[in-house]
């Protein structure tokens, strides 16, 4: 969170938690998701995919707040978020 201003109601609100899904072979390794994830959830994989790119890996899944920015920025439709199941349960 080092680059972000702290919301005034941060103490009262609980950030949602999301799961990040990556389609490894679909990625073209642009790095948009890694660079712009506000919670540094993603890191560059050491592995190559079949196209020869390094897709992102979910290095810090616990950090994801399901903002879906990676999903919006990804030009390859290779990454997306879902709200964590337990979160869904908790909000019912």
């Amino acid at each position: 969170m080092k680059y972000w201003r702290k919301p005034l109601d941060a103490e009262r609100k609980r950030a949602p938690h999301g799961n990040v899904h990556v389609i490894f072979e679909r990625c073209k390794g642009c790095g948009f998701c890694i660079a712009y994830c506000p919670r540094q959830v993603l890191e560059v994989s050491d592995e190559f995919n079949r196209k020869g790119y390094h897709p992102p890996v979910v290095a810090h899944p616990e950090q994801c707040v399901n903002c879906r920015l990676c999903e919006a920025l990804c030009p390859e439709f290779a990454i997306w978020n879902t709200l964590d199941e337990q979160e869904v349960e908790a909000t019912k």
Partner: peptide
Amino acid sequence: GLVLMNPNQLIVGRGTAEHHPME
């Protein structure tokens, strides 16, 4: 607008773990 976004309003309807919502 990266912060303070309501994920329920953002981008297309929810995907599932297997299905990208934009597909």
